[in-house]
Simulated scan of single mutants.
Amino acid sequence: MPRKSQGWITFQASEEERKILDDYCQRTQRSKTDILRELVRGLEQRPDSTPGEDEAAPFASDRDQQEFLAVQRDFAISARNLLRGKITAIAIDGVNAELTLAIAPGVELVAIITVSSVERMNLTVGKAVYAVVKSNNVMIAAVP
């Protein structure tokens, strides 16, 4: 039997909570332990803030969370990474636009899309969007 003194944490989760965690693990191809460790580590990053305060929180409300789950259910997307964020900046340069998204407290993602896509999608600073990441290559660089 796992013991607290050995670092084990056990808790009761509802069937719905277990399904959400299982589905998320399946989509992201990550273990429950990895997901829960990431959540715990994120608790101390901004202890003075509350969700929805400054930057994009994972979900500002239950409705936002349900919308996110519906997007993942309704789209047939081959990409495994669907990141919810809020547009914090749009820089237009010729035919391209650089969008900066806040996807978590202290975490930004930058995407380059066409200006026509910005206009067609009516993208503005402050709008909640989803970044869909599909990559066949991820390269790592290190300083010797």
Rank of each mutant, 00 (worst) to 15 (best):
V132Y: 03
V132M: 07
S116L: 07
N136D: 12
V115D: 04
V110D: 07
A131E: 05
R120D: 14
K127Y: 05
V107Q: 02
N122G: 10
S135H: 09
K127R: 14
E119C: 00
E108K: 01
I113V: 15
V125Q: 14
N136Y: 02
S116E: 15
M121A: 13
L109N: 03
S117P: 02
V107M: 08
L109S: 02
L123T: 05
A128R: 06
T114C: 11
G126A: 08
V129H: 04
Y130T: 01
V132K: 01
V138K: 12
T114G: 14
Y130M: 14
K127H: 05
V118C: 09
A128K: 06
N122Q: 15
N136R: 07
S116N: 14
N122C: 06
N137I: 12
G126Y: 09
V129D: 03
A111I: 04
A128N: 06
V110Y: 03
R120E: 15
V129S: 02
V125D: 07
V138L: 14
S116P: 00
S116W: 06
T124E: 15
V133R: 02
A131S: 14
L123C: 11
T114I: 12
G126I: 08
T114K: 11
N136S: 09
A131V: 10
E119F: 00
Y130V: 11
A111W: 01
N137H: 10
Y130R: 02
V129Y: 01
V133W: 01
V115M: 07
V118M: 06
Y130K: 01
V115P: 02
V118L: 09
V133C: 04
A131C: 13
V125M: 08
T124Q: 13
N137P: 00
A128I: 15
N137L: 13
L123N: 07
S135V: 06
G126F: 10
V133N: 02
A111C: 11
I113E: 03
E108M: 03
V110A: 09
E108C: 02
E108H: 05
I112Q: 11
S135Q: 11
Y130C: 07
M121T: 04
N122M: 10
A128Q: 05
T124V: 14
N137F: 12
M121S: 05
V110E: 08
A111V: 09
N122S: 14
L123R: 07
I112P: 01
S116I: 10
N137V: 13
T124D: 09
